[in-house]
Design a protein around this nucleic acid. Structure first.
Lengths: 104, 104
DNA sequence: TTCTCCATTAGCTGAATTGCTAACTATACT
DNA sequence: AGTATAGTTAGCAATTCAGCTAATGGAGAA
């Protein structure tokens, strides 16, 4: 198998940044975080005003970025926030800008 | 005038995240940072492989997000990195995820 | 003024994104 | 088996995005 789940073509930063570009996807991450990091797809979807399939697709995009992972539990699909990936990826990029360079 | 430069409709986080979604725009910010925070449009553009107008548009998008500002100097246009806006906006959002919530 | 240089705006095309409804899959319940 | 529940996939339309070339604007130099 050549596909590593979220490792095809673009690098991690590209995928994470693209996933974070949409307000609803950022909101999903926050909801997940404040509900303990794990939620069923339905619990997530009912908190948003758009249609279920639309939310479902956003969830898949988050999964493909690696920011969440999925576990099955009976007929539920549990989405799990990958908090470290989020904070590391974003934090590491942001870190480039922390030092003063030629402060003038 | 009703337009506040980078304040029409979307909020700051939306605009910043959208601007950061494109690899070239992130690269521009890094180049700006490591060259001291200020560069002429031409100096920026010649570092990228795409056409000049394309880079120019990315620069405008960055400006509309507030991540850079522009100053004129003779016939040059100097782009200035708004480093604090970048680190504050991104840092503040990221900060929500720093604390453990219901750590299990 | 005219010419040149720096850079943007205009206008187009193709691809990606986002939303919807309808149809489908899979598991559980009776 | 048959039905209900949980959620995704398929397929479509509208919008936005990203790239290009060509045309334009604006400031300085001759």
């Amino acid at each position: 198998m050549t596909e590593n789940t979220a490792t095809e073509g673009l690098d991690q930063l590209d995928r994470v940044m693209a996933a974070l570009a949409h307000p609803l996807r950022r909101q999903v991450l926050l909801v997940l975080h404040f509900r303990g990091g794990e939620m069923g797809a339905g619990d997530i979807a009912e908190r948003f005003s758009c249609s279920w399939p639309t939310t479902s697709r956003h969830l898949r995009q988050l999964e493909e970025s690696g920011l969440v992972s999925v576990r099955r539990d009976g007929r539920q699909r549990i989405y799990v926030l990958e908090r470290e990936l989020l904070t590391n990826t974003l934090g590491n990029w942001l870190h480039w800008f922390k030092g003063n360079v030629r402060p003038k």
